[in-house]
Amino acid sequence: MRVLLTGGSSGLGAALLNACVARGDRVTVIDTARCPDAVPPSVHWLRHDLGSADMAGWDAIETALAGQGPFDLTILNAGISATGRFECIPLAQHQQISRVNLHAPLRLCMLLQQRRAFARAGRLVFVASLSCYTGYPGAASYAASKDGLATFARSLRAALRRDGVGVQLLCPGPMDTPHASRHAPRDAKPGRRIAPDRVARLVLGASRRRFLLLPGPGARLAAILGRIAPQAMTRIMGRVLFDKLKGRLS
């Protein structure tokens, strides 16, 4: 199987990469990090900052994708965050979040679809967040980018179904990754977070026909509550999360 993965160096991305390599996939990774020394020859590592507007970098990506595809499985996973009061987080960080988490996946999808690089009977997975159901005060630009991805995924579904490609939206709750520990309140209990390996298994094993992937019973419950009472859910997030995050940066 041919796989395209953005953000493969850490957290969920690293778990996805390991699981793909273990089952014999050939994986193209796009990541800002340097290629790790230990990667096997089945991995093609493209070093690129998805948040940059650098023309040469994007041209290189376009050429590389044309040579590596079509992809049976595309996972747009790369994402960054910043937590705290919106106005206390430097503007440059909000802008970088918007570019990496939203501008870049849209641009990549456009390139891939224009170059017919989504293989028939394949899948395209967007990694969003449970925040799409709960709201995320304390990470306003991050929440924006993930809601944008979710809307984009829903909007693309019909067109890609005609090409035989299944679009999927992954909305994980807190995971046990470096990202989560960086952005969670200080007293959060890591034990409650879901292991990235489990989420990776769910993604790789999911049927092409399922649109929404919610890993774990906690995430499923939060999504149901968020659907029934969206504003109440966001207010609860404000109480239990934002009140703690506020103190971090200001």
Binding site: F86, G135, Y136, P137, G138, A139, A140
Partner: peptide, 9 residues
């Protein structure tokens, strides 16, 4: 999603 978070903050 931005407004949803900001309204609460």
């Amino acid at each position: 999603g931005f407004g949803r978070a900001l309204a609460e903050e």
